[in-house]
Protein backbone atom coordinates (compact mmCIF):
# COMPACT_ATOMS: atom_id res chain seq x y z
CA UNK A 1 0.00 0.00 0.00
CA UNK A 2 2.19 2.83 -1.28
CA UNK A 3 0.13 5.62 0.28
CA UNK A 4 0.61 4.05 3.73
CA UNK A 5 4.31 3.78 3.18
CA UNK A 6 4.36 7.41 2.16
CA UNK A 7 2.67 8.44 5.36
CA UNK A 8 5.40 6.70 7.37
CA UNK A 9 8.32 8.38 5.69
CA UNK A 10 10.67 10.31 7.99
CA UNK A 11 9.27 13.37 9.69
CA UNK A 12 11.45 16.18 8.34
CA UNK A 13 11.55 19.59 9.94
CA UNK A 14 13.81 22.59 9.72
CA UNK A 15 14.12 25.91 11.45
CA UNK A 16 16.55 28.82 11.06
CA UNK A 17 17.92 30.24 14.29
CA UNK A 18 19.96 33.39 15.01
CA UNK A 19 23.11 31.75 16.32
CA UNK A 20 26.24 30.25 14.79
CA UNK A 21 26.30 26.44 14.65
CA UNK A 22 28.38 25.94 17.84
CA UNK A 23 25.91 27.86 19.99
CA UNK A 24 22.89 26.39 18.17
CA UNK A 25 24.26 22.90 18.85
CA UNK A 26 24.93 23.74 22.50
CA UNK A 27 21.44 25.15 23.06
CA UNK A 28 19.85 22.15 21.38
CA UNK A 29 21.69 19.67 23.61
CA UNK A 30 23.05 21.07 26.90
CA UNK A 31 20.16 23.51 27.27
CA UNK A 32 17.34 21.21 26.17
CA UNK A 33 15.62 21.62 29.55
CA UNK A 34 15.19 25.31 28.78
CA UNK A 35 13.06 24.80 25.70
CA UNK A 36 11.65 21.27 25.57
CA UNK A 37 7.86 21.34 26.23
CA UNK A 38 8.28 18.97 29.16
CA UNK A 39 4.87 19.46 30.77
CA UNK A 40 3.05 18.29 27.68
CA UNK A 41 5.67 16.16 25.93
CA UNK A 42 7.25 13.73 28.33
CA UNK A 43 6.77 10.36 29.93
CA UNK A 44 5.98 11.81 33.35
CA UNK A 45 3.84 14.73 32.09
CA UNK A 46 3.18 16.95 35.12
CA UNK A 47 5.55 14.86 37.22
CA UNK A 48 8.42 15.59 34.85
CA UNK A 49 10.91 18.03 36.34
CA UNK A 50 14.13 17.59 34.44
CA UNK A 51 15.61 16.65 31.11
CA UNK A 52 19.32 16.11 30.47
CA UNK A 53 20.94 15.60 27.08
CA UNK A 54 24.16 13.70 27.70
CA UNK A 55 27.27 14.73 25.79
CA UNK A 56 29.07 12.37 23.44
CA UNK A 57 28.40 9.02 21.77
CA UNK A 58 26.79 6.58 24.19
CA UNK A 59 25.42 9.32 26.44
CA UNK A 60 21.70 9.26 27.20
CA UNK A 61 18.78 11.62 27.08
CA UNK A 62 17.17 11.30 30.49
CA UNK A 63 13.96 12.68 31.95
CA UNK A 64 13.64 12.98 35.73
CA UNK A 65 10.35 12.86 37.65
CA UNK A 66 9.42 14.64 40.90
CA UNK A 67 9.95 11.40 42.89
CA UNK A 68 13.46 11.03 41.51
CA UNK A 69 12.72 8.22 39.07
CA UNK A 70 14.12 8.56 35.60
CA UNK A 71 13.18 7.59 32.08
CA UNK A 72 15.73 7.19 29.32
CA UNK A 73 14.46 8.58 26.03
CA UNK A 74 17.38 7.65 23.86
CA UNK A 75 21.10 7.25 23.36
CA UNK A 76 23.45 9.47 21.38
CA UNK A 77 24.81 7.58 18.37
CA UNK A 78 26.61 10.44 16.61
CA UNK A 79 28.10 13.48 18.34
CA UNK A 80 29.84 15.74 15.87
CA UNK A 81 29.54 19.30 17.14
CA UNK A 82 28.77 21.75 15.75
CA UNK A 83 27.27 20.15 12.64
CA UNK A 84 25.72 16.77 13.28
CA UNK A 85 23.95 14.89 16.00
CA UNK A 86 21.99 11.63 15.98
CA UNK A 87 20.28 9.67 18.69
CA UNK A 88 17.96 6.73 19.16
CA UNK A 89 14.49 7.65 20.37
CA UNK A 90 12.46 5.33 22.54
CA UNK A 91 10.74 7.61 25.04
CA UNK A 92 8.38 5.40 27.00
CA UNK A 93 8.85 2.40 24.72
CA UNK A 94 11.21 -0.61 24.78
CA UNK A 95 14.69 0.22 23.60
CA UNK A 96 14.36 -2.46 20.91
CA UNK A 97 11.61 -0.38 19.33
CA UNK A 98 13.68 2.75 19.06
CA UNK A 99 13.24 5.13 16.17
CA UNK A 100 16.00 7.50 15.13
CA UNK A 101 16.42 11.26 15.20
CA UNK A 102 19.11 13.09 13.25
CA UNK A 103 19.82 16.81 13.59
CA UNK A 104 22.03 18.77 11.20
CA UNK A 105 23.28 22.28 11.92
CA UNK A 106 24.31 24.18 8.79
CA UNK A 107 25.61 27.74 8.83
CA UNK A 108 23.33 30.07 6.90
CA UNK A 109 25.17 33.37 6.72
CA UNK A 110 27.00 34.92 9.68
CA UNK A 111 25.38 34.16 13.00
CA UNK A 112 22.60 32.01 11.58
CA UNK A 113 22.08 28.30 11.44
CA UNK A 114 19.57 26.09 9.65
CA UNK A 115 18.64 23.22 11.94
CA UNK A 116 17.25 20.19 10.10
CA UNK A 117 15.64 17.39 12.01
CA UNK A 118 14.76 13.95 10.62
CA UNK A 119 12.76 11.51 12.70
CA UNK A 120 12.90 8.14 10.95
CA UNK A 121 13.05 4.41 11.56
CA UNK A 122 9.32 3.67 11.42
CA UNK A 123 10.06 0.99 8.86
CA UNK A 124 12.55 -0.94 10.95
CA UNK A 125 11.46 -4.22 12.47
CA UNK A 126 11.89 -4.67 16.14
CA UNK A 127 13.95 -7.81 16.43
CA UNK A 128 12.86 -8.82 19.91
CA UNK A 129 9.26 -9.42 20.89
CA UNK A 130 7.80 -9.53 17.41
CA UNK A 131 10.35 -11.94 15.98
CA UNK A 132 9.21 -14.56 18.49
CA UNK A 133 5.66 -14.52 17.21
CA UNK A 134 4.42 -17.34 15.02
CA UNK A 135 3.52 -15.10 12.16
CA UNK A 136 5.95 -13.10 10.17
CA UNK A 137 4.64 -9.60 9.92
CA UNK A 138 6.62 -6.73 8.55
CA UNK A 139 4.03 -4.10 9.10
CA UNK A 140 2.54 -4.72 12.51
CA UNK A 141 5.63 -3.66 14.49
CA UNK A 142 5.81 -0.53 12.41
CA UNK A 143 2.30 0.47 13.37
CA UNK A 144 2.95 -0.40 16.98
CA UNK A 145 6.09 1.65 17.12
CA UNK A 146 4.48 4.59 15.39
CA UNK A 147 1.59 4.51 17.84
CA UNK A 148 3.86 4.04 20.84
CA UNK A 149 6.07 6.99 19.99
CA UNK A 150 3.15 9.24 19.27
CA UNK A 151 1.39 8.14 22.46
CA UNK A 152 4.43 8.91 24.56
CA UNK A 153 4.59 12.39 23.19
CA UNK A 154 0.98 13.01 23.99
Amino acid sequence: MPSNLTSLKPVRKSVTVPAAPPRAFELFTSHIHEWWPLQTHSVGARQAVGLVFGEGVGAEIVETMTDGTTSVWGTVTHWEPPHYLAFSWHAGTPEGEATRVEVRFTEDGPGHTVVRLDHSGWERRSDGAFAREDYDSGWEPVLGRFAAVAATLH
Binding site: V11, K13, S14, V15, H31, E34, H41, L117, A150
Partner: peptide
Protein backbone atom coordinates in the same frame (compact mmCIF):
# COMPACT_ATOMS: atom_id res chain seq x y z
CA UNK B 1 4.52 16.67 12.53
CA UNK B 2 2.87 19.28 14.71
CA UNK B 3 4.67 17.92 17.77
CA UNK B 4 8.09 18.54 16.21
CA UNK B 5 6.91 21.93 14.97
CA UNK B 6 6.12 22.92 18.55
CA UNK B 7 9.42 21.59 19.91
CA UNK B 8 11.49 23.36 17.25
CA UNK B 9 9.52 26.59 17.67
CA UNK B 10 10.38 26.59 21.33
CA UNK B 11 14.00 25.82 20.54
CA UNK B 12 14.16 28.71 18.05
CA UNK B 13 12.58 31.02 20.64
CA UNK B 14 15.23 30.00 23.15
CA UNK B 15 18.01 30.76 20.65
Amino acid sequence: DSFWDLALDRYAQRV
